[in-house]
Design a protein around this nucleic acid. Structure first.
Lengths: 243, 243
DNA sequence: TTGTCGCATTGACGCAGGTTAATCCGCTTG
DNA sequence: CAAGCGGATTAACCTGCGTCAATGCGACAA
């Protein structure tokens, strides 16, 4: 891989072969580098004039709050992911984005992004295309929430995370470092924290996965994959379609 | 509205001001008009070389099948919606699309779509942009499945349908014609058909909505909206952003 | 040192919603 | 006409998961 190719540029090159100019525009988007601490949300539900972000380091989650105080995590994002795109497209954010760890991200102002999209439609396509592929992940979550039980959901979630992290070099087939709490898992999987704990114990006792001390260790990938009915193909790309 | 403006063109004009040429390309996509009967899926999970479709008439649903035979409906589509976009972008479909009624749809071959996208990137942006807004709907479903109970889910689902149908002139605030069976509702809401029936009875007895004889009648919009915590803003557009 | 705060863990108990199965109705088909 | 089928409806029963509550433990601050 050429030097100085950002994770995002790398990702987008799966969708379109970008010109020097377009790559330059992409680089420009990395000028406003910012850090965020845990507890300081990047994007807030209902706020307008939001910026988008390109995540360079750390983990975040996007979630929606309900009136009764419960929340549903829609998506966990890891380095290389684009954040808050919809909040720019819609002008007003429909979800919150919270750092799970300290993070480093490049802020892209709404008007800059829209400007770049207008001038470089091919770049726009690549970005929106990538976003539309992220949707496949959301759909998988939806299926899990609707039709899988707690064990299966958990297994699927951990396998998906593992696969995504491996794609950006942050994990091995044996496991990965994971900053999520059991409360995060509960909010992502539509469960209670208590039940998350029960399920994790079962999976551990059955010798399938261990989720402990900030580390996920996969003991039996095959059985886990089968349990979760996990098919990684929705996470893979197969080369650029837009030439 | 100018004559001969297709529902899709109308929808896309919310996202980008399209040129005559681009409108022409869009029109060309409507050449291969096809009809499908109930029971003949348009797109099949796992198949490659899929076409996309623009729905002109009737309802369809996209769903995923699980090993145990259960299924989860991800989305219901109504006239004006674009179908199977992801199955073209990914080259192989990750979901099925089934007609709920007899439908009329324009088939757009994968290579034609990709060709048009390459030559008219602005058009591509508009289409992908619209798709990314459809994602907001999927996210709402996800939140419902994760954090709402059966009553709330049902109320939310019916209100969303009502709003979408009104936007294309197929419903009024008082109700709409609805070809869905209670099995469809069950598969969409992650419930059993039996429980769907229970919930519908309750809502009817409480004087909120009636779902009967292919007709949804909304008796008390305010209470229903409050029960569902329904906020229609995610379905609205506010004028084109891409000029 | 002591208090507190976030997170993990476990037990007891209850309920929303699943499962099974029976019945009914209207439509189609032979 | 009977038979079959898709869909709606209801009752009886059961279970996966939520809720509540208590405990432990490490990190950090006063």
């Amino acid at each position: 891989m050429p030097n100085a190719l950002s994770p995002l540029a790398h990702k987008l090159s799966n969708f379109a072969i970008l010109s020097e100019t377009e790559m330059g525009v992409l680089d420009d988007m990395h000028r406003r580098r910012r850090n965020f601490a845990v507890g300081h949300d990047l994007v807030l539900q209902g706020q307008t004039r939001q910026a988008a972000f390109i995540l360079a380091k750390g983990w975040v989650c996007s979630y929606k709050l309900l009136r009764d105080g419960s929340r549903q995590i829609v998506d966990i994002q890891i380095p290389g992911d684009f954040l808050g795109l919809r909040s720019v497209l819609f002008r007003t954010a429909d979800h919150n984005i919270e750092p799970i760890t300290e993070i480093e991200a490049s802020e892209v102002l709404g008007k800059d992004l829209l400007g770049a999209f207008s001038k470089h439609p091919r770049l726009a396509s690549a970005v929106l295309w990538a976003a539309s592929c992220d949707e496949a992940m959301v759909v998988e979550h939806l299926v899990g929430l609707g039709r899988r039980n707690a064990r299966e959901r958990m297994a699927h979630f951990l396998l998906e995370l593992s696969t995504r992290l491996m794609l950006v070099g942050l994990g091995t087939p044996a496991g990965f470092a994971c900053p999520l709490t059991q409360y995060h898992l509960a909010d992502a999987l539509g469960l209670s924290a208590v039940h998350v704990n029960r399920v994790l114990r079962e999976l551990r006792e059955d010798g399938l996965v261990t989720f402990q001390y900030g580390q996920v260790t996969i003991h039996n990938l095959d059985v886990l994959t089968d349990l979760a009915e996990f098919d990684r193909s929705y996470l893979d790309q197969e080369g650029p379609l837009l030439r």
